[in-house]
């Protein structure tokens, strides 16, 4: 009988590479691995969704990183006489209520989104991975304790948790980051834990143990490489969620502080003048939609190609 029902549900991973049959040589293996890589690259390049996703994601990173060089104006420079101007050659995406250039604000807003997404997702991923592996590999009581903690955090609705925390501490970018990290750790941890559980009793781990390897060594050298793949795909799919959480909190006035531009604050300001200047909402919404689509397409394409269980179903 299995200790945990999820163990039998997840099935065996197709990554166990120990114990080669006698007639297979090293060269054969290298040749086969290279062929497989080429095959996967070809599959990715012929997947239009994946390529579109990659292009959009690259655009997102580039526009955010190079915003100071791309933006035609200082995003916080006021020009009240030119307020609520429509799209013109001077202001390609129009101006807001204080005459600030919307295009420049969108570009700089991308930096906020990128910062939250990059820092938030990577910290959550690393912490979630470590906690998940410890939960899966460690003693039973620790597993239960961590699971209880994960499920407790997961049971809070993100926005409600954010509302409560901001009411206590006041809005700030750091607060948004903390909320994103805290609420995303459990999902990475749960995936990492399940994957670790399935590896726990495999021969190569048992062999490693019998040789007297420490827990840290086993986790770092043998478990992690086998677990991290699916997590990275999950992270790519998670980026748009994080970006929209930040935009949502900023929309409600709970995120970045003025005058910092964020896609959420641009949307909110645009919503307030929607009858006078509808293009502001459109201009603020487009990058949000494209980023969300980009990361989702990319994540799905990667999952289709690299997840062996998905592959069998094709």
């Amino acid at each position: 009988m299995s200790e945990n029902p999820s163990e039998s549900e997840t099935g065996e991973p197709a990554v166990d590479a120990s114990g080669l049959p006698d007639h297979v040589t090293d060269a054969d293996i290298r040749e086969s691995a290279a062929r497989e890589r080429r095959e996967k690259l070809r599959m990715f390049l012929t997947n239009w969704q994946g390529v579109t996703g990659l292009i959009l994601v690259t655009l997102f990173f580039a526009s955010a990183i190079f915003a100071p060089w791309l933006a035609p104006y200082d995003p916080n420079a006021l020009d009240v006489p030119a307020r609520l101007s429509g799209p013109t050659w001077d202001h390609l995406a129009g101006t807001d209520q204080l005459g600030r250039d919307t295009l420049s604000r969108i570009l700089y807003g991308g930096r906020v989104a990128l910062k939250i997404a990059a820092i938030g997702v990577s910290v959550a991923l690393v912490v979630g991975l470590i906690l998940g592996m410890i939960a899966g590999f460690g003693p039973r009581w620790l597993d239960n304790l961590l699971l209880l903690a994960f499920d407790t955090v997961r049971s809070f609705p993100t926005i409600v948790l954010a509302l409560a925390m901001v009411a206590l501490t006041g809005p700030s970018l750091g607060m948004v980051l903390a909320i994103v990290i805290i609420t995303s750790i459990p999902q990475y941890a749960r995936v990492a834990r399940t994957a670790t559980l399935t590896l726990k009793n495999t021969d190569f781990i048992l062999a490693e143990r019998s040789l007297g390897a420490s827990m840290a060594r086993i986790l770092l050298h043998h478990v992690m490489p086998n677990v991290v793949g699916p997590l990275l795909i999950l992270a790519a799919m998670d980026v748009p969620v994080v970006v929209t959480v930040e935009a949502g909190l900023s929309f409600l006035g709970l995120g970045v502080l003025p005058p910092t531009a964020s896609w959420g604050t641009i949307l909110n300001e645009g919503y307030l003048v929607i009858r006078d200047a509808p293009w502001m909402v459109i201009a603020g919404g487009i990058p949000l939609i494209l980023t969300t689509l980009g990361f989702t397409f990319l994540g799905e394409a990667l999952r289709d190609i690299f997840d062996p269980r998905m592959g069998k179903g094709r």
Partner: peptide
């Protein structure tokens, strides 16, 4: 207060 007009006024004062 977190409302439209005052947030705009506050940002002008900030500048």
């Amino acid at each position: 207060l977190n409302n439209q007009e005052r947030m705009l006024a506050a940002q002008i004062i900030q500048a």
